[in-house]
Amino acid sequence: MLMYTLKRLLAGVITVWFIATATFIAMHQVPGDPLMNDKAVSAEIRANLEAKYGLDKPVTTQYFIFLGNMLKGDFGISFTQQNRKVNDIIRDHFPVSATLGILAIFFAATGGVLFGALTAVYRNRMPDVAIMFLVILGISVPSFVFAALGQLMLVNINSLFGYSVIPVAGWGTIWHMLMPSLVLGLTTMALLTRLMRSSMLEVVNEDYIKTAKAKGLSPTRIFFRHQLRNAILPVVTVLGPQIAAITTGGFVVELVFAIPGLGRYFVQAVQQLDYTVIMGTTVFYGAFLVFMVIVVDILYGFIDPRVRLS
């Protein structure tokens, strides 16, 4: 088990290095100039800015300086907020995205498992058809539509009551988090529902279910102890990457609900060609994704002993 974990960790480090390198190369290929702004500046000022961010050196040198600093855990200073360190940006804003993401995953996982199981039990009957329709909707409708709709719904609820029942935007209390995390988790919930459904249907035909039935176990017991527990495995597998995807993919939701998360920096950095923030957030998110995959792989070993053998 220890060997297995170490091997996975080593592979993870190499993956992160690869992500960093690929991003670095891609970023420098993007046309445009990170130091350019509305007001043109003289050659002297430009030279100073280039020196400040090390852009006056050849790209290969920049790359090695970047790698060296990355090993020290220092991503430098933001281009757009020239007095803020990228490390501070990640430290200030990732916890917000993470909180939102965890709540979203909670909604997604409970909803997904519940609805998935339900559709499997009521296969081809009314609840199945209705839920699957919603699932298709959830997968195909982009999140900015849901975000706008969700917010509008809150405005209408509040005006119905005559005062603010649930805040329409902002950050601070659990009430601020409800709608955005629901919206954020919706696509994943739809995904998990579909996964859970097919997984459940596969399990239903397994021999051990027949055995359980033959033993005369109650349908509830069969459902919870034998069917659900076995069917949930694939869901756990995708949960890791999904957690990472959700905590990083919240840009639209963060914008609509005015949430100070890292997703906004992540996307705006690319638009603004903010080199240091692009590298910092990408490497951080990349490392986070890799870490989550490893965690799930290790957990998987505990849930299903067969996995460890391979």
């Binding site: 509008l152 005006s159 902002g170 609900f257 005015a258």
Partner: peptide, 19 residues
């Protein structure tokens, strides 16, 4: 300044909601 967002629709919603 309780809200920071570039989304004009979100800001209109906040205005409508009396925020």
């Amino acid at each position: 300044v309780d809200y920071i967002t570039a989304d004009t629709r979100a800001r209109l919603n906040l205005y409508t909601d009396g925020k």
